[in-house]
Amino acid sequence: MFNRNIEEENRIYAGLFDEVKMRQTSDDLKGVSNKAFLGTVELAPRSISFERLASLEGEDFLTGVFFALFQRLPDQKEKEAFKGMDKESILRSLVNKGSFSIRKMEIKDCPYENVKPGIKGKTMGLASSVSSSTALRKLAKKMPAGIQGKIRKLFR
């Protein structure tokens, strides 16, 4: 029988996160709390329980939700766009991102009603098969760096 020690496991994850924050020279991780990072540990690939993120507030919530849904942090432009928004508004906005549908994400235990992709989001979800096409990936890698960046953003 496998006995878990969740406290010890989280201590290891938090310790690792502290290590990288200490050495990271850019500002990307400075505002990311261990609590926000730990909120994303053990999350399933598609189905995210809102309960894990519910206790996060402010920028922590935005960071946690981004990393939970998209396995990345919000960039500066996105942080500005979401500044001051309440949790419900953030969630409703994020589920309508193309990448939410492309990644086929679901949010369980959500206290807000009907938090689901709209037409734009669903349309983008049809593009999910494109992102796994090796032929198209090869083609994309031959593009100039600026265009590659724009393509990557589409699937983020």
């Binding site: 050495r23 990271q24 991780l29």
Partner: peptide, 15 residues
């Protein structure tokens, strides 16, 4: 050496 890596990669690597 996280300074040499993309931040998103670092976070996934920590996991």
């Amino acid at each position: 050496f996280p300074q040499f890596c993309q931040t998103d990669d670092v976070m996934n690597f920590v996991d």
